[in-house]
Structures are given as C-alpha cells and as structure tokens.
C-alpha cells in the first residue's frame, strides 16, 4: 500500500512537471498528449495492481517469469536510449559542422 502511494506521488510530480512544461511551451500538443496518456496509464496500473496481477496469473504467467520479462525490457530500453544518445551526438556534430561551413562561407562573400 505504501509503495503504491509513493509511486502515485512520483507520478503526480511528473504530471505537475508535464503541465509546467506545457505552460512554458517546451512541449507541443502531441508530445504533451502522449506523455499525459503514459502517466495516466501508469497511475491506473498502480491503482489496479491487484486486478492486473490476477489477469497475469489467469494468462498463465508466474511471478518469476514476469520479473525476468521486466528485467529484459529494462535492459533493452537502456540499450535503446544509449543508442539514441549516440545517434543524437553524431547528428549534433554534423549540425555544428554545417553551421560552421555556412558561417565561414557567408563571411567570405
């Protein structure tokens, strides 16, 4: 119960942050909507955790199997984020190079 309350507090914190970012126009409407749905679904999952447990058991998954699945998903996500970070860094580097070429060419004219 305490864990659920803590998790809900964390979600409320992220929701407040989300609305704040929307107010400051740091997010566009689509991004805001996607994140809003994500956090609301997370909140629902926490509130109805017992029902989800029952559903998972009914589908034939044991607790241990679910744990392994979660670990694998987390690892995959970490890897994906890392790859994305590297791709962004490469793109950043290219953008800088392009900006530099344009700046120096403009000065030469």
């Amino acid at each position: 119960m305490l864990q659920q309350i803590l998790a809900l507090f964390i979600i409320v914190f992220f929701l407040i942050r989300l609305f704040d970012q929307k107010r400051k126009k740091q997010l566009n409407a689509n991004e805001f909507l996607i994140w809003l749905i994500f956090w609301l679904l997370a909140a629902l999952a926490i509130i109805f955790i017992k029902q989800i447990d029952q559903l998972v058991a009914w589908l034939g998954f044991s607790g241990a199997a679910i744990n392994i699945l979660v670990y694998i998903v987390v690892l995959v996500l970490v890897y994906v984020v890392f790859r994305m970070r590297l791709t962004i860094a490469k793109m950043d580097k290219n953008i800088t190079e392009l900006t530099r070429i344009v700046t120096l060419r403009q000065k030469d004219k």
């Binding site: 953008i95 800088t96 900006t99 530099r100 344009v102 700046t103 120096l104 403009q106 000065k107």
Partner: peptide
Amino acid sequence: VLKHAINRGQGAALQTGTDY
C-alpha cells in the same frame, strides 16, 4: 563578427573563430 545561424555552444563557436 561571425554569426552562427543556430546556437551551437561555446566550444563550437571557438572552433569557428579559430578556423577563420
């Protein structure tokens, strides 16, 4: 004055200036 069309950071600006 050299002008970056987009903000790239201090390191990038230094290299542009040094190249020039």
